[in-house]
Amino acid sequence: MDRVPILKLGDILIVTIQIDLEDQSVLALQEDLADTVVATGARGLIIDITAVEIVDSFIGRMLSTIASVARMLDAQTVVVGMRPAVAITLVELGLSLGGVRTALNLEKGVALLDHVWDRARR
């Protein structure tokens, strides 16, 4: 089973999904992320799917679940780098990823987190 490395950058955890993951690995990642959020006290979580060629209902649900779990652990999630073909396919599949924040790339994802934190402070 493949494990996906989780990077810590200040208050933010960054996960880059590089390979075509088995369902087991997707579930493991979900648990690893929740554990790491708690262990590090991270307040933001960026999931980079630039290299991901398809998002089916299993991965789609994982993204929604991670965002919900992270929120409960006081961390905000942004999914970045979704390919246009993936977005089109997801919509046709019937998955809206409601509740998941998205940004076009890593830089915009970080900016979005800053914005969310700013607003929360005010």
Partner: peptide, 28 residues
């Protein structure tokens, strides 16, 4: 299955969006 379907979808000449749709359906 996803990987092989992708390979054949490219060979058939499906557009990138259609490749993505087929591989996603195959995965489901």
């Amino acid at each position: 299955v996803r990987q092989h379907v992708r390979k054949v979808a490219v060979e058939v000449g499906l557009s990138l969006v259609d490749q993505t749709k087929v591989v996603t359906a195959a995965s489901e």
